[in-house]
């Protein structure tokens, strides 16, 4: 009963921080997708470069997300951008870039040479090959990269609280330091449902975007 009371009293702030949280993710996402998938496609043409980039992204991805936030603050500090939403969004873009570049690269790499050759043999142009073969065939893997980034992003954005970016991190971190259980519960429920919800939604989109011929039961 207490908890419901809390929800009613605080519904405005709950909605506000949920919005803040979504805002950070949704601002970051288009940039991350465009840059990530684009870079992936561009460098997939160069064997050596792809290898280095794959290696580099795998190293960067091992850096813990709070540390990455810290790095952002450090880098953006001199530009007076160290606090608020911008560094949170930028950090998220950079962090999500990594799985997207990775998945795009490995998706395109996994398309057999024979298939590309036979497309060339049929007289397809580079552009046609890209849009009619490479992208549709890599879409499922690219999509799963996007899904991973978003799900990761939901968690990472929570750290944004520490740099005054707002978001659901408020309920957890402020709740913990104030010992306010109802805040913590609210944070857990919202973050968990956001993570699971987006994951489910994106899985559905993934399976819709998968060309029929590539669908198989897992």
């Amino acid at each position: 009963m207490n908890y419901i009371n809390y929800l009613i009293v605080n519904k405005d702030i709950i909605i506000k921080e949920l919005f803040n949280h979504l805002q950070i993710i949704l601002y970051a996402l288009p940039f991350a997708i465009l840059i990530g998938v684009g870079t992936g496609i561009l460098i997939s043409k160069h064997q050596k470069l792809s290898k280095y980039v794959l290696y580099l992204t795998s190293i960067l991805m091992t850096i813990p997300s709070p540390a990455l936030f810290g790095i952002m603050v450090i880098i953006l500090g001199p530009f007076k951008l160290g606090l608020g939403k911008p560094p949170a969004i930028i950090a998220l873009v950079i962090y999500s870039l990594l799985p997207m570049i990775r998945n795009t690269l490995s998706a395109i790499k996994s398309i057999s040479k024979e298939m590309i050759d036979s497309a060339k043999g049929m007289g397809m142009t580079e552009m046609q090959i890209l849009f009619k073969i490479k992208i549709p065939l890599s879409l499922p893997i690219i999509m799963s990269g996007i899904r991973n980034s978003i799900v990761m992003g939901i968690g990472i954005a929570a750290i944004g609280y520490y740099i005054s970016a707002g978001g659901l991190g408020y309920f957890i971190f402020a709740g913990l330091s104030r010992g306010r259980y109802e805040m913590i519960i609210t944070g857990i429920i919202l973050l968990a449902s956001l993570g699971m919800g987006f994951n489910y939604l994106l899985l559905k989109i993934e399976s819709l975007l998968t060309p029929k011929g590539l669908r198989f039961k897992n």
Binding site: T62, P64, G70, V73, I74, I163
Partner: peptide
Amino acid sequence: IIFTGLAHYNVSIIFAGVLPVSILAI
């Protein structure tokens, strides 16, 4: 260290946590 640094917006403290944790992970 990192959270202390973030809370005080102290770049030097943040860095003192970020560097070793990144090295550790890698």
